[in-house]
Amino acid sequence: MDVQLIAMQLLSGAVLGAVLVMTALGFTIIFGMLGVVNFAHGALFMIGAYAGVAVAMQTGSFWWALLVAPLAVGALGLLIERFLIRPLYNRPADDPILLTFGLGYVLVEVVRIVFGNDGIPFSTPAALVGVVNLGIGYFPIYRLFVIAVVALILALLWLGLEKTRFGLIVRAGARDPQIMRVLGVDMRRLWFLVFGVGIGLTALGGVLAAPMRNVNPEMGALVLAEAFVVTVIGGLGSIVGAVVAGILVGLVVSLTSLVAPEMATISMFALMALVLLIRPQGLFGRAGA
């Protein structure tokens, strides 16, 4: 097997991983801060893709879809937190799990009713069609664009978390919500915003993935499992962990599919099992957390 082929496959893995990171980030942040395992996360990824399709059909522009769909689905996330999740905060941990589990099904069925069962093609924007010669081989321009967008979002998130007052509140609130309350921070408002951002991120993942996958009502199911795997590997609630584990899972799946395509999906679960055996708290998790 030649080196160039492996290099190209690694690059494909990075693209896969980049989309995963967008979904897993929201999943792990919501879990880390709100303590809510959001089983509707995959469905909201799918909603993101459909919102992208809808906006693109209306405006005729992929760029508008990329901008508007995550914001609109993020706003839907705010409504979900406010009216469905918030009333359950003082209830047993199972309640939000059951609620989001059911919500995921409802969202899938709603999309089926509105858009039908069949997949919808979502064409690559004209400016990003084609391939580019990287010296090691030809690679689709759109996939490089996906890596760039995710890198940009991660850089913005990092800046926001490390350099702003709001970011400081989020970082501190993730570690010790009670002390933040007695320092005057309305944690409920913070959770509300964090939920919205987390859902906006997964919706962005959905829009980015749409031109590379078939947009259909079921596309979120595997995404939810992947977000789970990435969160466990990276460490529950760890942002850095989600980024590293997302890329790692992308690379492992991609390399496995080179040698044994039928094992690709399983390889990610095997990786998770391995990490759990060696380091149960995940790569970047805090022991006991």
């Binding site: 007052r165 509140i169 570690r175 933040m180 320092l183």
Partner: peptide, 20 residues
Amino acid sequence: RRIVPGLTVRENLQIGLVSS
């Protein structure tokens, strides 16, 4: 005491000011 782990001493002071 509840010093927030992962934050520097300066940041632990800053969180005392975020809602002053």
